[in-house]
């Protein structure tokens, strides 16, 4: 019987928090509650990144997901919501489709978990790098500079396209 360290306890707490928030997002019938649970899930994932010694990525997760994308989603919900709030995020009214969705998701998850559990994954007990942010910057602006530039152009095009789509075509 191996010792349970405080590190493991922290992982279990963060994992439970993340999974319960995700379940709350999917099972809630009110879309505003779903959005709030989604923000909790993003913060849980950020805590997982901190636990994995990826501090910079955790900060990016909080800034981009819990900050920007959640605000975007809540604005969209405010623009398109109408009617009874408790009926805004219902499941598929056809029970067959709903059950098929649950069945496929359950089957896929069970298959993935079994595959991961029964394959002995190799683990390296090495130390993480000291200056991870510096190394990341060196890779991003050195070896992977093309990916960096393509991501920048993609983001610009997507935002301009989103503005054009949301503004709509002017009727003559």
């Amino acid at each position: 019987m191996s010792m349970v360290t405080i590190n493991d306890m922290a992982f279990v707490c963060i994992a439970l928090f993340t999974i319960l928030s995700a379940l709350g997002m999917v099972l809630s019938r009110n879309i505003v509650h779903s959005a709030l649970a989604l923000i909790m899930t993003f913060i849980g994932v950020a805590m997982l990144f901190f636990h994995l010694d990826a501090g910079f990525l955790g900060l990016v997760q909080i800034l981009v997901y819990a900050g920007a994308i959640s605000v975007l989603i809540i604005f969209a919900i405010m623009l398109v919501m109408h009617g009874e709030p408790n009926q805004t995020n219902r499941f598929n009214p056809s029970l067959g489709t709903h059950l098929w969705g649950a069945y496929i998701a359950l089957l896929m998850t069970a298959g993935l978990v079994a595959a991961i559990w029964f394959s002995g994954l190799p683990e390296v007990k090495g130390r993480t790098v000291e200056d991870a942010v510096g190394l990341l910057a060196e890779l991003l602006l050195g070896k992977y500079v093309i990916a960096f530039e393509v991501a920048a152009v993609l983001l610009l095009l997507a935002v301009v396209g989103a503005i054009i789509l949301a503004r709509g075509v002017e009727e003559k």
Partner: peptide, 18 residues
């Protein structure tokens, strides 16, 4: 995997596009 499965369940069984 569990998070991914919850996401798949949401995509397949919800009706609201958001």
């Amino acid at each position: 995997s569990l998070l991914f499965g919850i996401g798949v369940y949401g995509v397949l069984s919800k009706r609201n596009a958001v």
